[in-house]
């Protein structure tokens, strides 16, 4: 099985080309599982993390933490996220370790072009989601 780094080799160039020359950097994150951070120029605050297990490649964008959700609107937010899920292309809302995320899952043998497409969709969707859902945040 290829390592994650081998699998997505050249992702920065593919992304940059698709984003009209925007600077894109890849940074491996040390730890017990493979994680690579993707930073897109102009969106440094919303990095995308790519991680792989034997069953899938996951692209994750952290949106906000539990504490940032307005207590009085929490239930409404959760329902809204569930309702939005099917309509958002390629990305879904989730929650990992008390943090709300937007993620895209790909088959473990995804090509670098597939990952690039998912990362771009995720980045656009995340920015869009932050803007659209900020009324639910403190």
């Amino acid at each position: 099985m290829k390592s994650l780094q081998e699998q997505i080799a050249g992702l920065d160039d593919v992304l940059s080309a698709r984003l009209g020359g925007t600077a894109v950097s890849l940074q491996p994150i040390p730890g017990s599982v493979p994680v690579i951070q993707v930073v897109i120029g102009g969106r440094e605050e919303l990095p995308i993390f790519i991680t792989a297990s034997e069953t899938q490649v996951l692209c994750i964008c952290y949106l906000w933490s539990d504490e940032e959700v307005r207590a009085d609107k929490r239930a409404e937010l959760l329902e809204t996220l569930l309702a939005l899920n099917p309509s958002i292309p390629l990305s879904a809302f989730g929650r990992i370790d008390k943090r709300f995320v937007l993620f895209g899952a790909l088959a473990s043998d995804a090509r670098v072009e597939d990952v690039a497409q998912d990362v771009i969709a995720l980045s656009d969707n995340a920015l869009d989601a932050l803007e659209a859902l900020s009324a639910y945040l403190v």
Binding site: I29, P30, G31, V33, Q37, L58, I60, I96, D97, S134
Partner: peptide
């Protein structure tokens, strides 16, 4: 794997001194 990845990411953010800013 997902939770471990999250842990690595949090640890890394803590280690590099950069902080997760609010949404």
């Amino acid at each position: 794997s997902v939770y471990r990845a999250t842990r690595s990411i949090s640890d890394n953010i803590g280690a590099t001194g950069s902080k997760l800013v609010s949404a």
